[in-house]
Amino acid sequence: MANDPIHQFQISKIIPIEVGGLDLSFTNSALFMVATVAVTALFLIMGTSGRGLVPTRWQSMVEMSYEFVASTLRSSAGNEGMRFFPFVFSIFMFVLIANLLGMFPYFFTVTSHLIVTFALAMVVIGLVVIYGFAKHGAKFLGLFVPHGVPGALVPLVTLIEVISFLSRPISLSVRLFANMLAGHITLKVFTGFVVSLLASDALGIFGPITSILPLVMGVALTGLEFLVAFLQAYVFTVLTCMYLNDALHPSH
């Protein structure tokens, strides 16, 4: 496969399934979604199997992830927001574990496909809209009309608010997708240089020597990508919490 940096995003069928002309095959992407769920579930359930009053290191990590998401949700959506906790926690863990699994060489990154991140974003926005209307009815539309705006400006501000609301699923999904995609391409390109330089005859002895530079870069980028993997999961979660807060308290 060598140097094609796009190849890592290729979806290949593992078990072909076709229903009514629609391709629903179990692919490598599906495999890594299953792996994400399995890793998450094992991490959380086996980590807490001791139910220790004094936690082990593993249980400590589980509790830390719980408290981390809980405090994020509570700080942006208040105590009422805690009813969405299982959902927000699932989102965080799914994105985080999918991102981290993608860091393994030859592993597929589920979140590097726009359709996946967009679907997750639409679930969030769909939940916000449905819950918002179910709880507040027409008052939910007050979200688009901020208080304290002079009368003449209301239509303009409302228009801006509507556009910003509609762009939320796009920005939410594209941010995660683009970060994962770009990071993996960069990583692949730089580490590809190492191989190319080692293999090139044209540079003679300088080929292997200069190949250290992209190697150093590759190591640094790997560290950065781990940070990005966590950070993007966190950003996705924080924004989810803020949007859910809008559904809970639509008046500005």
Partner: peptide, 15 residues
């Protein structure tokens, strides 16, 4: 279609 289906299944299971 396949990604959406498997995402729905896996994310639903995770939830």
């Amino acid at each position: 279609a396949s990604q959406l289906l498997w995402l729905a299944i896996t994310f639903g299971l995770l939830y």
